[in-house]
C-alpha cells in the first residue's frame, strides 16, 4: 500500500485524469439514464465532485477534499490555480471580434449588466446572512455570477476556503437552476430568437447553464447564448476582484 501511494503520488496528474474521467463518465451516465437529459452531465459531475469532497473532508478532517488522500493528491494539481486559469483562458478561443460586433450594443451591454446584477444580488444576500468582511461579501457576489468568478475572485482576495466553497455552491445552484428552469420559462420571457438568446446568455453568464438550458429549449439558439456568455466569466473575473471589490470596500 505504501508503495502504491508513492507510485500514485509520483504520477499524480495521471491519477487525477483517471479520477475525473470516471466521475464525468458516471455523471453523463446519470444525466442520460436517470435525469433523462434534463440536467446536463457537467453540472452533475461538479455536484458529484463536491459531494465526494465533502465526504473526504469528513473522513480525513482536511481542507482539500479528496486531494487529502495520498492516492488522490494529484487532484490538487489538476484542480489547482495553474490549470484552472489555463483552461478558462482557453475557452475564450474561437470567439471572433466580428461576431462580437454583430451581437449589437444590447447584446454586449447585457454582459456587464448581467455581471453587475448577479453580483448585486449575491452581495446583498451575503450581507443579509451577516457577512461583514468586504472580501467575503465580494466573493459571494462573484459566486452568484458563476462558479468560476467566485473562486477566482476569492483566491485573488485571499478569503478562506469555506467562503470559496460557498461561492462555488452559489454558482452551482445557479448553473443547475438555469439548465432546469430555462425550458420551463423560455416562452414567457420570449426566448425564441437569436437576439433574446444573446441577451439571455449575457445576463445569465454561466456557460454550462446557458448551453444546457438552451439545448433543452431550442438547440439552434445554443451558439447565440454561448457567444455572449463566453465573455461573462472573463468580465466577471476582471470586474469582481477589482472595481466591484473597491465599491464594496468603500460602502461596507
Amino acid at each position: 500500500m505504501e508503495r502504491l501511494e508513492k507510485f500514485a503520488g509520483d504520477n499524480g496528474l495521471l491519477v487525477a485524469f483517471v479520477f475525473v474521467g470516471l466521475v464525468m463518465a458516471l455523471a453523463f451516465f446519470l444525466s442520460r439514464h436517470v435525469g433523462r437529459g434534463r440536467v446536463h452531465g457537467s453540472a452533475i459531475a461538479i455536484a458529484l465532485a463536491l459531494v465526494l469532497a465533502g465526504v473526504a473532508g469528513a473522513d480525513t478532517g482536511g481542507k482539500n477534499g479528496v486531494a487529502d488522500y495520498p492516492l488522490l493528491a494529484g487532484i490538487g494539481v489538476l484542480g489547482g490555480n495553474m490549470f484552472r486559469d489555463f483552461a478558462i483562458v482557453a475557452t475564450a478561443f474561437g470567439v471572433r471580434l466580428s461576431d462580437l460586433r454583430a451581437a449589437g450594443l444590447v447584446g454586449a451591454l447585457s454582459i456587464p449588466i448581467g455581471v453587475a446584477l448577479s453580483f448585486l444580488v449575491g452581495a446583498l444576500v451575503a450581507l443579509g446572512f451577516g457577512l461583514t468582511d468586504p472580501a467575503e461579501i465580494t466573493t459571494i457576489g462573484a459566486g452568484a455570477a458563476t462558479y468560476i468568478v467566485g473562486p477566482v475572485t476569492g483566491a485573488s482576495l485571499g478569503v478562506s476556503s469555506r467562503i470559496i466553497s460557498l461561492s462555488i455552491a452559489a454558482g452551482l445552484v445557479k448553473a443547475v437552476l438555469v439548465m432546469v428552469a430555462t425550458p420551463l420559462v423560455a416562452r414567457r420571457i420570449g426566448l425564441d430568437n437569436p437576439v433574446s438568446a444573446m441577451v439571455y446568455g449575457g445576463l445569465m453568464g454561466t456557460t454550462s447553464g446557458v448551453t444546457g438550458g438552451l439545448a433543452a429549449t431550442d438547440p439552434k439558439l445554443v451558439p447565440y447564448g454561448a457567444m455572449t456568455s463566453t465573455f461573462y466569466t472573463g468580465l466577471g473575473c476582471l470586474l469582481c476582484p477589482s472595481v466591484f471589490y473597491l465599491v464594496v470596500k468603500a460602502l461596507v
Binding site: 484552472r84 466553497s165 452559489a170
Partner: peptide, 29 residues
C-alpha cells in the same frame, strides 16, 4: 474536467453549514 477536479478539492464540509446562503444567492441571481 478541471473545474470538476477543482470542486473535488474544495472544503465542502465547511460550506454546508452556510449552504442556505449559497442556495438563496444562486436562486435570486
Amino acid at each position: 474536467p478541471i473545474i470538476v477536479a477543482m470542486a473535488a478539492k474544495q472544503n465542502v464540509l465547511a460550506a454546508v453549514s452556510g449552504g442556505v446562503m449559497a442556495a438563496v444567492a444562486g436562486t435570486l441571481a
